[in-house]
């Protein structure tokens, strides 16, 4: 399985996922008009990874902004992580938010309420 590494742009986040280490990183802004198209390569790779995941899967989400179109794709991503967890990998989602960014913390809590994967809420000091 090839690792995925996509550089961030003003509208799309940096994405890094290496199936050989089980570390996934999503960082920056996610406000594309067409988010399904953007997230497809990552979702497809996670689908393959889910068949034979590493014992530990670590997910770092550090988003500055995301639009509602991305929010559905992020939920899809988390649902994949749920099935990876069900296939025997210890998955943790580290949800980073900036100090004072209550909206981003709340967005993380919304996902936490829907997804059956352990979340860690991590505040970034400014």
């Amino acid at each position: 399985m090839e690792a995925i590494s996509i550089e961030g742009t003003p509208k799309t986040p940096t994405i890094k996922f290496d199936p050989s280490s089980g570390v996934l990183e999503l960082k920056g802004r996610s406000i594309p008009e067409n988010s399904i198209e953007f997230y497809k390569p990552l979702i497809d790779l996670l689908d393959k990874y889910a068949a034979n995941p590493k014992p530990i899967t670590n997910v770092n989400i550090q988003l500055e902004y995301f639009n509602t179109s991305s929010s559905k794709c992020i939920l899809d991503l988390f649902k994949k992580l749920e099935s990876i967890k069900n296939n025997g990998s210890a998955v943790t989602i580290n949800w980073h938010y900036e100090e004072d960014d209550e909206d981003m913390l709340e967005a993380g809590e919304d996902y936490q309420a829907i997804i059956n994967v352990p979340f860690k809420m991590i505040q970034i000091e400014e």
Partner: peptide, 8 residues
């Protein structure tokens, strides 16, 4: 198809 979905 484009990712909208009534959340906006």
């Amino acid at each position: 198809e484009k990712g909208g979905g009534g959340l906006g």
